[in-house]
């Protein structure tokens, strides 16, 4: 773990995302407020916190997946290498091609394993050797040996853990710079979960990872940085999320500065 931390500190200067005073709304309802956070390159940043604290909401802003919700809007800036993702001339589809996403529920297409992986590259008009790209992506998700003989099988016929790895392979096939993972292990059994965590350590050599997790042990095991989201209700009972504390994972879990963080990571609330 310490070696991981050293590498990440080394590349710490290289910031992928920086948010500036981001507030997120659904209609009139303020869901998350005052998000100021930096996501460093080639490291795993974990978002933890109680339910309803907006950690998934913030994650989905990083590749503009919230655009699908009609009432959603935000102010402040989300900078990706200094470029504001929500500027008016930015194409959301283009953003999603460079910033991949893995969802809570594995969601392979009802197509073959091969076609699942090839889906993204084909969208991007990939002209190279597709077989090779599929193999590399599956290797990247550490599942090549399991499925190399059944690439023509349906992706939906795999087990839950394998489906999720297929989704990861599908996401990395387009070689994104960033991989967002929204509770990627929530629907998986403990063994599959550990395999995915193991995979994440490999992935961070090449990609920047941001994961949302409910599982604090997972955050402490797998991540380099942790942002703890908390939630506050106003007088009308509306619950607005905010970042209580953001630091290196060992700091968050061993010597947090905020009392709320201390209580949350030691399991006293949430």
């Amino acid at each position: 773990m310490t070696t991981n931390l050293q590498t990440s500190t080394k590349t710490n200067t290289d910031v992928v995302f920086r948010t500036e005073n981001v507030n997120i709304y659904y209609g009139d309802f303020k869901a998350v407020r005052d998000v100021n956070i930096e996501v460093p390159r080639h490291a795993i940043t974990a978002f933890i916190g109680p339910s309803g604290c907006g950690k998934s909401t913030v994650l989905r802003c990083f590749n503009r997946l919230n655009d699908l919700i009609k009432s959603f809007h935000l102010d402040g800036k989300i900078l990706y290498h200094g470029q504001d993702l929500y500027a008016s001339d930015i194409d959301a589809v283009e953003v999603r091609r460079q910033i991949g996403m893995v969802f809570q529920q594995p969601n392979p297409f009802p197509k073959t394993i091969y076609d699942n992986i090839a889906f993204g590259p084909r969208l991007l008009g990939y002209k190279g050797d597709m077989d090779e790209l599929v193999e590399n992506s599956l290797r990247g998700a550490a599942m090549w040996d399991d499925v190399k003989d059944k690439l023509k099988a349906l992706g939906t016929d795999l087990s839950g853990g394998q489906q999720q790895r297929l989704c990861i392979a599908r996401a990395i096939a387009v070689q994104p710079e960033v991989l967002l993972m929204d509770e990627p292990c929530a629907a998986l059994d403990p063994i599959s979960t550990l395999k995915i965590e193991d995979l994440m350590q490999e992935l961070k050599e090449k990609y920047t990872l941001v994961i949302v997790t409910h599982n604090m042990q997972q955050a402490s095991r797998a991540s380099d940085f942790t942002a703890f989201f908390n939630v506050q209700a106003n007088e009308k009972g509306q619950r607005t999320g905010y970042i209580e504390e953001h630091d290196r994972t060992e700091v968050i879990f061993q010597s947090p500065k905020q009392k709320a963080t201390q209580e949350y990571v030691s399991g006293r609330f949430g």
Partner: peptide, 15 residues
């Protein structure tokens, strides 16, 4: 059709 599939496709940058 399961909305998760739509999300997956959008997440990969499909229009």
């Amino acid at each position: 059709v399961n909305p998760a599939l739509r999300q997956a496709a959008y997440g990969l940058g499909a229009t």
